[in-house]
Simulated scan of single mutants.
Amino acid sequence: MARFTVAREIAAPATAAWAVLVDWPRHGDWVPLTTVRVLTPSPGGVGAQFVARTGAGPLAFDDPMTVVDWEPPSGDDPGDTPGRCAVEKSGRVVRGRALFTVTPLPGRRCRVAWTEDVTVTPHRITRHTGPLVALAGRAAFSTTIRAFARDVERR
């Protein structure tokens, strides 16, 4: 498995960051070459399902996900319960889990952390090169979380 976390402090309240973070189709605004479509009537809560399609032409792949943990932040003040969402990835190319946390901070700010714990097909790639896959993932998702932060802070 390849495991990495990217985190960023954002100049926005936790509840505002959460609302944007779990608006699954908006992930396509920050993740290059990606579109997201929700498969269930409700996009939020445990059991919600969506598919991220990443890539171009014959190099594109689907990354189907199901929400397995869902706890919105209880408020925007330090000491309020952080938001937490976990999704299970069940695709042919990427399998594993992603975890998002949104922690309220002083001054109507928050800290957003995005953790990926994934295996890439063929699985022997991740088994033998997990640290390199994690390094590449960390670099790519650092760009993603910066784009997410700009989006949230503009609101």
Score class of each variant (00 low, 15 high):
Pro58Asn: 14
Glu9Met: 05
Val94Met: 15
Glu116Gln: 15
Trp30Ala: 02
Phe148Met: 01
Ile145Gln: 03
Leu105Val: 02
Val6Ala: 12
Val38Ser: 10
Phe50Gln: 12
Gly137His: 11
Thr103Met: 05
Asp29Asn: 11
Ala16Asp: 12
Asp29Ser: 04
Leu132Ser: 11
Asp117Asn: 14
Val51Cys: 11
Asp80Asn: 07
Ala134Pro: 03
Ala139Arg: 08
Ala14Pro: 02
Val46Thr: 09
Met65Arg: 09
Gly47Leu: 01
Val118Thr: 08
Val31Met: 13
Arg127Val: 12
Asp117Ser: 13
Asp117Met: 09
Val118Phe: 11
Arg154His: 01
Ala12Gly: 07
Lys89Gln: 14
Ile125Thr: 14
Gly45His: 04
Met65Ala: 15
Arg109Pro: 04
Arg138Thr: 03
Leu135Met: 10
Thr103Cys: 07
Ile125Ser: 03
Arg127Lys: 10
Gly45Ala: 13
Gly137Ile: 00
Gly55Ala: 14
Trp24Ile: 08
Asp76Met: 05
Ile145Cys: 04
Thr40Asp: 05
Ala17Ser: 12
Thr103His: 09
Ala60Phe: 03
Arg150Asn: 00
Gly47Gln: 03
Pro32Trp: 03
Gly79Arg: 05
Ala19His: 02
Phe148Lys: 01
Arg108Asp: 13
Arg127Ser: 11
Leu105Tyr: 03
Gly107Ala: 04
Asp63Gly: 06
Thr5Lys: 04
Asp63Gln: 13
Val51Trp: 07
Arg127Pro: 00
Gly91Tyr: 13
Ala48Asn: 07
Gly28Val: 05
Phe148Pro: 01
Thr121Asn: 09
Ala52Gln: 07
Ala2Asn: 09
Gly91Val: 09
Arg150Asp: 01
Arg97Pro: 01
Ile145Met: 02
Arg8Val: 05
Trp70Gly: 07
Val51Pro: 02
Glu116Asn: 14
Arg108Cys: 03
Glu153Asp: 01
Ala12Trp: 08
Arg111Ile: 12
Gly83Pro: 06
Pro122Ser: 15
Ser74Ala: 15
Leu105Asp: 08
Phe50Ile: 02
Ala11Leu: 11
Ile10Asp: 06
Lys89Cys: 09
Pro78Gly: 10
Gly79Asn: 07
Pro41Glu: 15
Val22Thr: 15
Glu88Leu: 14
Arg97Cys: 13
Val87Glu: 11
Trp30Asp: 04
Asp62Gln: 08
Trp24Phe: 14
Pro73Thr: 14
Arg97Asp: 04
Arg3Met: 07
Thr40His: 06
Gly45Thr: 11
Thr35Lys: 07
Val6Thr: 15
Leu21Gln: 08
Ser74Thr: 14
Ala140Leu: 03
Phe148Cys: 01
Cys110Val: 06
Val6Cys: 10
Val20Thr: 12
Val67Gln: 06
Arg138Ala: 14
Pro41Ser: 05
Gly83Asp: 02
Ala136Gln: 05
Ala56Phe: 10
Arg150Trp: 01
Arg150Phe: 01
Pro122Gln: 14
Ala147Leu: 00
